[in-house]
């Protein structure tokens, strides 16, 4: 059940250039699934900021979010410290439906700040006995994070746009040379990357997760809609019907 909670920050650390990892307590009776996000209120800001769930630690009863400074809101969020409390709405949105699909080998494709939700997803896939191959793209080496954590899940390849770390180029360059049969792919990242990945993997089954400027974050305001392929005049709400969609369900633009 969705609710608004005040959560005390357990840790707040910088893990890469402009990129922060925040650990928060997981409230009782709240279940967070891979792909879902939390909607965070910030002092002095009218609108909340959606941040995806990067991990859940069921033993410690905590969850992790990762964000990158993009504007005023994420800058404000970067200045919070452990011990301070955050006003959070959770859980928000849809999740990767891994309980309902038959998958033996999953390809994970993440770009930049689209990488975090895929870590929690990959971890759950591995726990289910699924073979996981991860392809991660970043702008440059200074922005790479969680590479070791992904390596613990399976084969992991890193690309950077400027070539300062890993393969020079895009995630699609790596996918092209993979030559491994996959059942499903799961992707999250900037729209141009998602466009390229969904086109390249058009014949594969896959799920993507999206981001957009949101208003309410719970489905009332119709700010964050995405048009549907079967009828471009119709749309779904990213905050409530998404952020996870079947890869060929929506029009990315």
């Amino acid at each position: 059940m969705i609710s608004k909670q005040m959560l005390n920050i357990e840790s707040h650390i910088k893990i890469a250039e402009d990129t922060f990892e925040v650990v928060l307590p997981l409230p009782d009776e709240i279940e967070l699934k891979p792909g879902q996000f939390v909607h965070i209120a910030l002092k002095g800001h009218m609108l909340r900021r959606p941040v995806s769930v990067a991990d859940v630690d069921k033993e410690a009863n905590t969850f992790t979010i990762i964000f990158k400074i993009f504007g005023e809101g994420t800058l404000a969020l970067s200045k919070y410290r452990a011990g301070e409390s955050l006003d959070v709405i959770l859980p928000c949105g849809s999740f990767y439906p891994i309980e309902n699909i038959n998958v033996n080998h999953a390809l994970i494709v993440g770009g930049g700040i689209g990488v975090p939700p895929l870590y929690y997803l990959g971890k759950q896939l591995k726990e289910k006995g699924v073979k996981v191959t991860s392809v991660l793209g970043f702008q440059s080496g200074s922005q790479v994070f969680y590479e070791d954590k992904f390596r613990a899940l399976g084969d992991t390849f890193v690309a950077t746009n400027d070539g300062s770390y890993g393969h020079k180029g895009f995630v699609t360059d790596i996918i092209k040379d993979l030559n491994k049969p996959i059942d499903y792919y799961f992707s999250c990242g900037p729209t141009p990357m998602l466009q390229a990945v969904t086109k390249q993997l058009e014949k594969e089954k896959g799920y993507i997760s999206l981001e957009e400027r949101m208003g309410c974050g719970v489905g009332t305001c119709y700010a964050c809609v995405i048009p549907l392929r079967e009828n471009p005049k119709q749309s779904k709400k990213i905050c409530k019907d998404g952020p996870v969609f079947y890869a060929n369900e929506v029009i990315l633009s």
């Binding site: 009218m46 609108l47 809101g73 208003g215 700010a223 119709q234």
Partner: peptide, 17 residues
């Protein structure tokens, strides 16, 4: 079906939609 996105923006002490 409404307008294209982005449809909202935060402002000082308010928002545009």
């Amino acid at each position: 079906y409404g307008n294209p996105t982005p449809r909202v923006a935060e402002t000082e002490s308010g928002m545009l939609n």
